[in-house]
Amino acid sequence: MESQIIRVRTGGRESVADITGECAQFARSASGGGDGLLHVFVPHATAGVALIELGAGSDSDLLAALADLLPADDRWQHAHGSRGHGRTHVLPAFVAPYATIPVLGGRLALGTWQSVALIDLNVDNPDRQVRLSFLG
C-alpha cells in the first residue's frame, strides 16, 4: 500500500475544500496507471470527507444543511473553543472522516458531477491533514 499526507488550509471559517485534484494526482502516480482503491482519510475528530457536486451551489447548500442540523449555539456539552464547537465533534457521525474510491486505469472512477471534498466546520483549527492511501 502506498500512502501520502496532503495538507489543506481551511482558514478560520466553515468550509468545503475541493481535494479532487490532489486525490487524482496521487491515484495516477501510486497506481502506475493500474486499478485499485484510493482511500481518503481525515485524521481529525472534527472534519469529514464527502463525495459531492461542487461549484453549483451544493457547497453552500451542504454548509446550510449542517448549520440547521448542528447549530453553532450553546447546547453542546463539549464546550471548549469557539461557540458551538461541540457540534464539530458530532459532524463525523454525519459526514464520515473517510471515503474509498475505485481507481481504474490510473483514474478516479467518480461519477460525472462527483468531487472529493474535505468538510470542515471547526473554525478553531485552520490547518488539516488528509491521508491518501492506494491499494492496488
Rank of each mutant, 00 (worst) to 15 (best):
T112P: 12
D61F: 04
A109G: 07
L121P: 08
V95R: 11
R7V: 10
A93M: 11
L110Y: 06
R131S: 10
V103Y: 05
G84F: 10
D74T: 04
G55S: 03
A24Q: 13
G34N: 10
P71E: 08
W113E: 07
G12L: 13
R75A: 06
G34F: 11
S31P: 06
H44V: 11
G34W: 13
V8D: 05
L91P: 01
G81N: 02
F41L: 12
G81Q: 07
R28Q: 15
L54S: 09
G81C: 01
A67W: 00
P97H: 03
Q129I: 00
A72K: 14
S115K: 12
R75S: 02
A56R: 12
L118K: 03
A72G: 05
A109N: 12
V49M: 02
H85D: 09
T88C: 15
A50H: 10
G105L: 03
N122W: 12
G86L: 04
V90D: 09
G84V: 10
L66M: 02
G48Y: 07
L63S: 03
A117C: 04
L108F: 12
L54F: 05
I101A: 02
A47N: 08
G34M: 10
L91A: 06
P43I: 11
R7D: 15
F134D: 05
L70R: 01
S29E: 15
V116W: 03
F134E: 09
R28G: 15
T88K: 00
L66A: 05
T20G: 04
G106K: 11
H85C: 08
I19C: 03
L69H: 08
V42E: 06
R131D: 01
T46C: 01
T10F: 02
L69M: 14
R7F: 07
F94K: 02
V103D: 01
I6V: 13
A96Q: 13
L54Q: 07
L66I: 04
A117N: 08
V123T: 14
A117I: 07
H78R: 04
I6L: 07
P92A: 03
T100F: 00
I5T: 15
